[in-house]
């Protein structure tokens, strides 16, 4: 690897100061599982590496305002095994448990995952369906961005120079709400998804959909929301026709690229299948919840 300066500041303020000072030449690193590969490939060559690993308190998973705040330094494994997440937002624990392998999950952080903005990653898919908000810190202070405004393009986010992700906020599910996450892995269980779909559905006691959100992974330049599909199911009861209509609507928003996990056309088709499965899964859970 190329030579660089490495610091591990012990406060967020000094990390942000260092990042500002480093400007274009600086990069923050947390778990490093993505950045290390890019650096080894010589594709990213920061001359200053600012480690967030020593920042206190940034790995906490805690209840804040009717939801959970996951600190940016919480690892995938921390979230996956957190009793709070498991009991209150089980679909998130489930999603995290499907990411890569344990070795990666032990290291890769939630903040890093979001900032890396790889459209093939799983957590953003479910976080989109959960309507999560990203907390961002910069020298000017903190700001919040809705996750579906956070992703801009392949590996590109709404983070401005000098900013870092500090947390992601997820509201606790409302009564009658349930979610499902489907990761399609036709090759090996440690692969990136061919497609990934998360759906969340809130039902009235009568079984009518009051609210729905669908997140799509590996299906475009960013993790996507299938808004048209959501609109189709809201106000409706579950039926095969409804699911078919929703999945057709979802297919219209995807723009996948061909890679070893499948051709673009196959991924499009699978988007339809898994939107159907995820919606049905979430719906079934929500009706059980309501019952």
């Amino acid at each position: 690897m190329h030579a660089f300066d490495y610091t591990a500041p012990e406060s967020l303020a000094s990390a942000l100061a260092e990042l500002e000072e480093a400007g274009d030449e600086g990069k923050v690193i947390a778990g490093g599982t993505a950045l290390m590969i890019l650096m080894m490939q010589r594709l990213v060559r920061p001359t200053r590496l600012i480690s967030l690993r020593r920042l206190p308190g940034l790995g906490r998973i805690e209840v804040v305002d009717g939801g959970v705040r996951i600190g940016a330094l919480a690892t995938h494994r921390d979230v996956e095994t957190s009793p709070l997440i498991r009991s209150r937002i089980p679909v998130l624990a489930e999603t995290l448990s499907r990411v890569a392998t344990l070795r990666i999950r032990n290291v890769a952080t939630i903040g890093g995952c979001l900032a890396h903005a790889d459209p093939n990653q799983d957590p953003p898919v479910t976080l989109l369906a959960l309507d999560a908000r990203v907390r961002i810190a910069g020298r000017q202070g903190e700001r919040q961005v809705a996750l579906d405004e956070f992703f801009v393009d392949y590996y590109q986010t709404a983070l401005r120079p000098g900013e870092v992700v500090v947390a992601v906020d997820v509201a606790f599910p409302a009564p009658g709400n349930a979610s499902a996450f489907h990761k399609f892995l036709p090759r090996t269980a440690d692969d990136y998804a061919t497609v990934a779909v998360a759906a969340t559905v809130t039902l009235t006691p009568e079984g009518v959909c009051r609210e729905a959100r669908i997140g799509l992974g590996a299906l475009g330049p960013t993790p996507l929301r299938a808004r048209d599909a959501e609109a189709i199911v809201i106000g409706e009861r579950l039926s095969d026709r409804l699911l078919a209509a929703a999945s057709e609507a979802a297919i219209r928003v995807v723009d996948p690229i061909a890679d070893p996990r499948g051709s673009a056309e196959y991924k499009r088709q699978m988007a339809g299948v898994f939107v159907r499965r995820a919606l049905r899964g979430a719906w079934d859970r929500a009706s059980r919840e309501a019952a």
Partner: peptide
């Protein structure tokens, strides 16, 4: 699963992340 992709003689599966080998499961 094992297939090395190539385009114009360039192997496109250049890591074990893309060229998958069977795992425990």
């Amino acid at each position: 699963m094992e297939a090395m992709g190539a385009e114009d003689g360039r192997i496109s599966t250049l890591s074990l992340g893309d060229y998958k080998l069977p795992v425990t499961k």
